[in-house]
Structures are given as structure tokens and as C-alpha cells.
Simulated assay, not measured.
Amino acid sequence: MSKRTQSVRNLFAAGPDEAPTADTRQPMQRVASGAVRSLKDTFSEVERDYEELKQKVADGALPIDLDPSLIDPSPFADRFADQDASAVEALKASFLEHGQEIPILVRAHPTEIGRYQISYGHRRVRAATELGLKVKAYVRELSDDRLVVAQGIENSAREDLTFIERSMFALKLEEGGFERTLIQTALSVDRQEASKLINVGRAVPGWLAEAIGRAPKIGRPRWQELADGLKNAGAESKARKATTDKSFGHKTSDDRFIAVLRAIKAIDRPSAEKTPVLSVKSAEGTKIATLAVSGRVCKIEIDRDRDEAFAKFVMDRIPDLYEKFRQTEPGSEG
């Protein structure tokens, strides 16, 4: 039995009033100074790692988990409300199988403490919200310029924004006072293409673009055709009428575009001048028949309830009447 074990036993075996003697007292062992320094160094290293980690999180270099309900859309929306539902469902399936592999980018809300604004990742937020999950996000200090550039570059890299979404995004930035060079950078286009996007955005009213939706299969030439057509008098009224049709909301976004384009291109046919209806009356003043002329048709009407027999009588004599007419009106032949 070791002295240390014996000392412990003696400590608990002695009565409450018995103090350990000099013979039973275990001498205190000293810890080497090198071990103390090593322990201090370990704590210092852990503390440095912790501070470095905190700084990385603060700088947005590491993602954190956020409650989707605390995240607001970008103030410069680049997507229409009718997002591709299949894409969101695919994201949800990926979240459940692999987790969220790519974090979103947000900034602290400039006016509401504790809330955030998205730069990119709207669909990932929607998928996480519908699944009841938190969303991984980089939180960074972003000015409006940096936010829209990051937003535009991310979406341009994926090439999943439709032409009209890019057009309306470019117009929103233009009207927001952003420089044209920044708009070009955000959309990864040259000056000429940026001008085309903005011009189409100006020509197509916002309400109409929203009514049509993303129109993923409709490119710049067709949207330009619509923009040009809307310059004609009455075209916008035709477009609005097309959007109020009962079947409009049941069409796909691409088909809604086609319906509007057809509507504004439809030629207004001048209404035919109505010839006054001629009436034939009996000697007693009773109306016998009427003659109405519309377009290329002459229509004789006789009241069936009262004069059906007379109508048949007239029909039987029409060939004779026609021959007499041709004899008296030679110019009518041929």
C-alpha cells in the first residue's frame, strides 16, 4: 500500500477531533514551472482562436444560422413574385438530403435593429422558411452599391434571371440613382446591352410586366417587339383588356406574354356603317317585313307567328320576282 493511499485512509478513518500528525501528513507536490507555462500557452491559444473566430464571423467570412423570419428581401428586387415553384421544391429536397450547401449573403438592416436584408439567396430563404429551418448566411457590411453588385453578379453567374427580370432590375437601379457603369457591372453587360435593358424596362409598364410574369422562354427580341407595339395609340388599353380576360390567370407566364402581344397587334376593324332598317307596311299600317343591310348581307325578316304562311308565299315567288327585276334592271346582270 502506498503512503498516499494510507494517508487518504487515515484522513477518513481518524475521528472528527483527530488532526493528522506530522508522520501522516502528505507533503505537497510542486508543479513544474514549465507545465504552468504550457497550460497558460494553451489557454492563450484557445483565446486567440476564439477571438479570431469572432472576428471572422463579424467580417462575414464564416456563415451563421439565422431565423428566416428576420430576413427581408433586397430593397432592389431582381425577381418577380411568381418564382419558379419547381426550383424552390428542388432546393427543399436538397436541403433535406444534403443540408444547405451554399450560404446566402445578407447585411444588417439599415433601419431595423435585429433584422437583415438579402443580397442574394431569396429562394434559399423561401425553401428554409417552408421547411421550418434556419438558413446559413454570411452577414457583411454592404453599402447599396456593393449589395446590388453582389446580387447581380451572383444571379448573372447562375443565368437564371429572365430577360424581363434583368430589364426591370436595371431600370430600378437606374431610377435609384446608380451610375450606369455600376449597373453594367451588376448585370455583367456592356453599355449597349445595359441601355437596351433599361429602354425595354421603361417601355413596358410595371403593372404589365408583373401581370405577365417571368416569361422564361421570351427573350429580348420579343420583349422589344412588345415595347415597340405599346407605343401605338390604344395599345396599352388593349393590353390591359387582355390581362382582365378570365383565362389570363390560368395561362403560363410565356402564354400570358403571347396573349398580350397578340392583343396589341390586333387590327381594329372599322365598324360597318349601319344602314337604316327599312320597313314595309300594309294599307292598314301593320308591319309586314323589314330589310336590314349589314356588311355583305341583306336580311329580310317576316314575323313568323303572324305571317309564316306569307313568308312561304314570298319564297315561292322570289324566282319570278328576280326574273322580272333582271328584265327591268339590265345593269344588274352578271
Score class of each variant (00 low, 15 high):
8 V>E: 11
20 P>S: 11
25 R>Q: 15
37 R>A: 15
39 L>P: 06
43 F>W: 05
49 D>S: 04
55 Q>S: 03
58 A>G: 02
60 G>Q: 06
86 S>V: 11
87 A>P: 07
87 A>Y: 15
97 E>F: 08
99 G>N: 00
103 P>D: 03
113 I>Y: 02
121 G>S: 09
127 A>E: 07
133 L>F: 15
134 K>Q: 13
134 K>F: 05
136 K>T: 05
139 V>A: 06
142 L>M: 09
146 R>C: 03
154 E>A: 10
154 E>L: 08
156 S>P: 00
164 I>K: 13
166 R>S: 08
171 L>H: 01
172 K>S: 07
176 G>V: 02
177 G>S: 08
179 E>Q: 15
182 L>V: 04
186 A>F: 02
189 V>W: 05
189 V>K: 11
191 R>T: 06
199 N>Q: 11
199 N>D: 13
201 G>L: 01
206 G>R: 01
208 L>R: 04
220 R>P: 14
228 D>P: 09
232 N>G: 12
233 A>S: 14
237 S>R: 11
240 R>V: 13
242 A>V: 03
243 T>K: 05
246 K>E: 08
261 L>N: 02
262 R>M: 11
272 A>E: 06
273 E>R: 14
276 P>Q: 12
281 K>E: 08
281 K>Y: 12
286 T>D: 15
287 K>P: 03
293 V>D: 14
298 C>G: 12
306 R>H: 09
307 D>L: 00
308 E>R: 02
316 D>V: 04
318 I>V: 04
318 I>P: 05
320 D>Y: 07
322 Y>M: 08
324 K>N: 15
333 E>G: 11
